[in-house]
């Protein structure tokens, strides 16, 4: 559907940014992500950043995969209620 890849912002001038992706550099537009700052990781699609990656969210997901077993998976599923009926607290990922 939409090939997009994560890269780190090295510098920003106006609506243009230089990003680094494991050594590969390219100028992209941040017109769609005005909140992006230098050092942020952004998801890039056809030369535009379309979101600023939430590192805390990513680390939490990875941590989850680390301790994953039957129990944590089940527990997560219960707290990860449907978005429409949001449960009181979401200490695990899946807001």
């Amino acid at each position: 559907m939409c090939l997009a890849v994560p890269a780190r912002i090295l510098s920003i001038e106006g609506q243009e940014a230089e990003v680094d992706f494991s050594g590969v550099r390219r100028r992209i537009s941040v017109a769609l992500t005005p909140e992006a700052r230098v050092g942020d990781y952004v998801v890039i699609h056809t030369g535009f950043a379309i979101s600023v990656l939430d590192e805390a969210e990513a680390l939490e997901t990875l941590k989850l995969f680390q301790e994953l077993d039957e129990f944590t998976a089940q527990m997560l599923q219960d707290t990860d209620n449907p978005v429409s009926q949001s449960a009181p607290n979401h200490e695990l990922s899946g807001k």
Partner: peptide, 12 residues
Amino acid sequence: PESVHAACELLG
């Protein structure tokens, strides 16, 4: 190499 891998992901 990591940069080849990255460029390939970028270009699909």
